[in-house]
Design a protein around this nucleic acid. Sequence first.
DNA 1: TACTTTTACGAACGTTCGTACTATTCTTCG
DNA 2: CGAAGAATAGTACGAACGTTCGTAAAAGTA
Lengths: 210, 210
Amino acid sequence: MEKLTKGEQTRTAILDEALRIARQLGLEGLTIGSLAEATGMSKSGLFAHFGSREDLQLAVLEHGAKQYGEVVLMPALRIDRGLPRLRALFVHWLDWTLQTKLPGGCIMISAAHEYDDRPGPIRDAAVEMQRRGIGVTERAVRLAIEEGHLKKDTDPGQIAFELLGIVLASHNHGKLLGDKEARNRALTAFDALIARHAAPAQPRLRAASR
Amino acid sequence: MEKLTKGEQTRTAILDEALRIARQLGLEGLTIGSLAEATGMSKSGLFAHFGSREDLQLAVLEHGAKQYGEVVLMPALRIDRGLPRLRALFVHWLDWTLQTKLPGGCIMISAAHEYDDRPGPIRDAAVEMQRRGIGVTERAVRLAIEEGHLKKDTDPGQIAFELLGIVLASHNHGKLLGDKEARNRALTAFDALIARHAAPAQPRLRAASR
DNA sequence: TACTTTTACGAACGTTCGTACTATTCTTCG
DNA sequence: CGAAGAATAGTACGAACGTTCGTAAAAGTA
């Protein structure tokens, strides 16, 4: 519906393709020349959409984060708060990084590793995104505590830490080692983590339904 | 003691420097020119030690794996088999990836992410090393089961998976986000994982010592 | 339709990439 | 010491890198 100027829609098309490349080769492996060839544009024509290569890389990162928000975050927010939402968040996140349709995993995880010792704007952006992602997870955990699904002394930071670990291990086992059990292993680990912090079964007042 | 020919010792010196660079910039970020400058050699003189850039990258990877073996694996093998050894293995592994002395984490973890969607000899080598590492962990778990420290139905593969996740999360939190709690979080997660699979206290025959 | 802005192109810049050759210097050992 | 071989430097290459510039085509607006 909303009017999309020509430049904006080519820019989006470029970013789609750039994201595909960056997922496989990393943001540093993304070059203007190869991207121009992949999109069928000239180097200079493509370049004009971004003032510099670094700006292109930043735009790609943001483009990936946006997709992540649409595919992982938003669907989870439609699930009942508390444990169900936390689980949905985790499963969507997991499937997002394990998706085999498009090669290469989550661009944010890629960037995190690629720039963990390479200071600069891209690293800063990656850190900021990671922080936001962790914040989302922690908030979901806190809600689960408030809903009485998790014990009150549960540390949201610790849960977020361990969930990230499970996702990273899945990515490693699934994408690198080709382990078909990666997803199952992740779900097993998730269940165990939750069981460890689950609130004791609370006595229902009146007759419990079912 | 053992006679080291001149070429061999420069080669080692080159690999030391190359490893330092590759840890920060990745194996793909390692270039002949920058490495030559860092070592004070000419491009061609350095190049002669390795037939190609790819061979250099493979050599760097092996160099890193060798260091890993010396720093992580061997010390752990001197600890009592079973749970103590498994813990030592984990802690050394953790500290190895979190070491702040040299920038950049474990080169094998780096390579794993860098090449997870980039087929070729380097990827193959990285996969092989990961497999070996996981094998070592699984073996340590199996010994812990045999020693009666862990429950008999413990799945070594699952433990190795989750331990990898904890290390990866530590790397992420510690190196990227600068979270000083990363190591503590990792140890907490380790203890919880072990507690989950710990064999029930076995009744000691006769009087238990102490 | 005419005018202005946006969008894309082609050519060229200087630099760096990996690699190939040839020449020179240094080790090693009889 | 002096010859043989290993180790390093020098030079050059074609290709690809990111970027700049002037210009042509397309799109949007009046």
